[in-house]
């Protein structure tokens, strides 16, 4: 136990917390954007996974982490395009489509893994950003996005339209906001951000591993709820979850005989408690999941 406490005060521990939190934060910013516009974002998991695969594949081909990250963002946007087509254009049920997209991403990335590398489990090692956390441009991009995203929601014209589309689409439409266009923008942004989150996973891991998103998309969505659909608070919730995960890793190494499952479960339990209204009122955007013209 004392070993664990020592590592808690160490610099390396907190660097690890940040590293683990980055993909959560990127996905949660995307999730908050989509959900505030009134579109449920269960597909975060799939976007992370597809983003990670595209990143590893392109980074392997080009030997450039930059191009890899770009490909991850583009792949996330592509998944978002499919999602938007199904739920915005064709008004299919957002929950059903979200779950199905995650299944699709799960199957497709494994299929492509076999196709591209003849492997059922992982890609060959691919390049990542060198130079630790401080030298990682994706980390700084993520930090900058956290700073920018809250004022984007609360201070800009786009943010106002976004929130209006999510709270009362008819009222927004009556003052000339094209709700469909705002939601398309939000869904696409979520795709890009979650795709970048996937890029982080692949670059940090120096390669793609099957199912490497490991439920992070769902946890990011949980963070959005914990943060009451506000980006800065959601990012903070992600840090909390990242902290819990890091603790779990260290406690596992310390082998205390204490069930690390308890710590692993913390994010899920906290989310349920928050959703039940025990951590202040957590209210979803009023028109969340409601198609525009219904």
């Amino acid at each position: 136990m004392s070993g664990f406490l020592e590592s808690l005060v160490g610099f390396a521990f907190w660097v690890q917390v940040l590293r683990i939190s980055v993909p959560y934060v990127l996905a949660a910013l995307g999730g908050a954007t989509s959900e505030r516009s009134g579109v449920i974002d269960l597909a975060l998991e799939g976007k992370l996974l597809v983003g990670a695969f595209a990143t590893a594949w392109v980074a392997d081909l080009s030997q450039s982490p930059w191009l890899g990250a770009l490909a991850g963002a583009a792949a996330g946007a592509l998944v978002a395009l499919l999602y938007g087509l199904l739920v915005l254009r064709w008004r299919a049920n957002q929950i059903v489509v979200g779950v199905a997209i995650n299944l699709l991403a799960f199957g497709l990335t494994r299929y492509l893994l076999k196709l591209a590398y003849g492997s059922t489990s992982s890609s060959p090692p691919t390049p990542g950003f060198e130079g630790g956390l401080a030298g990682n441009p994706l980390f700084w991009a993520c930090a900058a996005l956290v700073v920018v995203w809250q004022p984007l929601f609360s201070r800009t014209r786009f943010g106002l339209r976004l929130r209006a589309a999510g709270e009362h689409p008819q009222a927004a439409a009556s003052v000339g906001v094209v709700v469909g266009r705002v939601r398309w923008a939000a869904v696409t942004l979520s795709g890009v951000l979650a795709g970048l989150g996937g890029a982080w996973l692949a670059l940090d891991n120096h390669g793609f591993t099957a199912e490497m998103s490991g439920g992070r998309g769902y946890i990011a969505l949980a963070a959005v709820i914990m943060g009451k659909w506000r980006p800065a608070a959601a990012a903070l919730a992600c840090l909390l979850f990242g902290f819990a995960e890091t603790c779990q890793l260290h406690l596992q190494a310390a082998d205390l005989g204490l069930p690390t499952e308890v710590i692993r479960s913390l994010p899920y339990l906290l989310t349920m408690v928050a959703l039940a209204g025990f951590i202040g009122r957590s209210r979803a955007p009023a028109a969340l999941g409601v198609p525009e013209d219904v």
């Binding site: 489509v97 199905a100 199957g107």
Partner: peptide
């Protein structure tokens, strides 16, 4: 897995 997902969608 892909086919199943396509069917749902």
């Amino acid at each position: 897995d892909v086919l199943q997902a396509v069917i749902i969608l």
